Amino acid sequence: MMYRIMKNKKKNENISVEEKVEQLVENINTENREEIKERLMFGEILSRSFGEGYKCLRKKVKNEFFNVVMTEK
């Protein structure tokens, strides 16, 4: 079971932003489809850039980053 979970996780990490957005909107048939795609694309790119940047940080800086991002203002 763990092998299947890890296999699916790796498979989903390797798809591009465009492919992921297309999978999400393939069943949407509205006039706002292009706007939805643009917003999903922006969110996905932002999420991936934060994730990649976070992976490169040292432990002390990760803690500071977490405190800044997760504190409510």
Rank of each mutant, 00 (worst) to 15 (best):
K59N: 08
M70A: 14
E19N: 09
N29A: 10
K60C: 02
R4A: 12
N29K: 15
E26K: 15
E38W: 08
K20L: 08
N32L: 09
T71D: 04
E31R: 14
T71V: 12
I5F: 10
M41I: 03
V68F: 14
Y3R: 12
E72W: 11
N32E: 11
K59F: 06
E34D: 11
K7F: 13
K59T: 02
G51K: 08
K59A: 06
E64N: 06
Q23I: 02
E34F: 12
N27P: 13
K73W: 07
F65V: 03
S16N: 07
C56N: 10
N29F: 13
R58N: 12
K10T: 02
K9F: 14
N8S: 15
I28P: 09
K62P: 05
E52I: 04
E38D: 14
F42D: 00
R48M: 09
E64R: 04
N27T: 02
N32R: 15
Y54N: 06
N32C: 10
E44S: 04
N29C: 10
M6S: 09
E64G: 06
R4P: 03
E13S: 11
M41Y: 07
I5N: 10
I5L: 15
E52M: 07
T71W: 10
I45V: 14
N67T: 03
F42M: 01
E18V: 04
R39T: 08
M70Y: 15
G51Y: 04
V61E: 00
K11Q: 13
F50R: 07
N29S: 14
K62E: 02
E19D: 07
R48H: 09
F42P: 00
G43R: 02
E72P: 10
K9V: 13
M6L: 13
V68H: 10
K11P: 01
E26W: 12
F50E: 01
K55V: 07
I5P: 05
E26Q: 13
C56F: 06
E35W: 10
R58C: 11
V61G: 03
M70G: 07
E22G: 05
V25F: 08
R48G: 08
T30G: 15
F65Q: 02
N12S: 04
L24E: 01
R4I: 05
F65C: 04
E35A: 15
T30E: 09
I45Y: 08
E38A: 11
I45H: 06
E72Y: 13
E22P: 01
G51H: 04
E13D: 08
S47Q: 04
Y54K: 12
G43T: 02
N14H: 10
E31A: 11
N14I: 00
S49L: 04
N12G: 00
L24Y: 05
Y54I: 03
